[in-house]
């Protein structure tokens, strides 16, 4: 379970402050599928990074499964990222010199799992995303959709309960985007909590509910099925955008 209370993330730029997140309160239950939407620069990635323990809030509390992460050491945070959280990025972030299998197995390396077991588990994870035959390929030998599925295999290899995807289909054409979303939906159906940052209404519609951010604040909460077009969604009644 994720719970954020009065969460602020403030960047100090010279003599003025920029609030990427301001007073965010939210609770996400285990097994939920939540989409985070909002105009560019509204704080979506910042929120995801704080939830993923990559970034820490300037103010407020973040409780992960009831535990306040603020007091945790670097080692403990690394361990949370390793075992409890899986990250999926818009730009895949695969290491080009490593094969798909080796990329997938990386978290297992940090977990100290022996090479033979790593290989077997990486192969199984690749099979689960339909890429068993690409295990030995380098990232530059894979299509965008294949790369993202390798990244998903990597994010899930340690069996985390929480998956965080920051615009996972942002760099993909709609067909491979759909494939990737199908894989994510399947992972959600297995019981994982899934948080997806997206611009795409089609992606958001798959979610149970949608959080809409605006200038670092939660501006709206809607059901996934209610997402139709962005203009309506991002019309906050102020008239500006």
């Amino acid at each position: 379970m994720i719970r954020v209370e009065d969460l602020w993330r403030t960047y100090v730029m010279g003599d003025h402050e920029l609030h990427a997140l301001r007073a965010v309160n939210e609770e996400i239950a285990d097994g939920e599928h939540v989409a985070i939407m909002g105009p560019s620069g509204s704080g979506k990635s910042t929120l995801l990074n704080v939830i993923g323990c990559l970034d820490s809030p300037t103010r407020g509390r973040y409780l992960l499964d009831g535990e306040d992460v603020a007091g945790l050491s670097d080692e403990a945070l690394a361990d949370i990222r390793l075992r409890r959280i899986g990250f999926i990025f818009q730009s895949f972030h695969l290491i080009p010199r490593l094969s798909a299998r080796e990329n997938v197995a990386l978290p297992l390396v940090f977990a100290g799992i022996p090479a033979a077991e790593r290989r077997a588990r990486a192969d199984r994870a690749l099979e689960a995303v339909g890429l068993a035959d690409r295990a030995g390929h380098r990232p530059n030998e894979l299509s965008g959709g294949q790369k993202q599925r390798v990244a998903i295999a990597r994010a899930t290899i340690m069996g985390p309960r929480l998956l965080l995807a920051d615009e996972p289909t942002g760099n993909l054409d709609s067909r491979s985007g759909t494939q990737v979303l199908d894989v994510l939906s399947a992972l959600h159906r297995e019981g994982r909590t899934l948080l997806v940052v997206t611009h795409d209404p089609a992606v958001a519609r798959r979610a149970d509910r949608v959080i809409v951010l605006r200038d670092g604040e939660i501006a709206k909460r809607v059901a996934g099925t209610d997402v139709t077009d962005l203009n309506r969604l991002f019309d906050f009644g102020g008239g500006a955008s």
Binding site: D74, D79, L82, R83, H93, F110
Partner: peptide, 16 residues
Amino acid sequence: TEEVGLLKALGASRRQ
């Protein structure tokens, strides 16, 4: 740099 960021996101500790 990017790779280091990735390794950290994947769960590598400072020490590693």
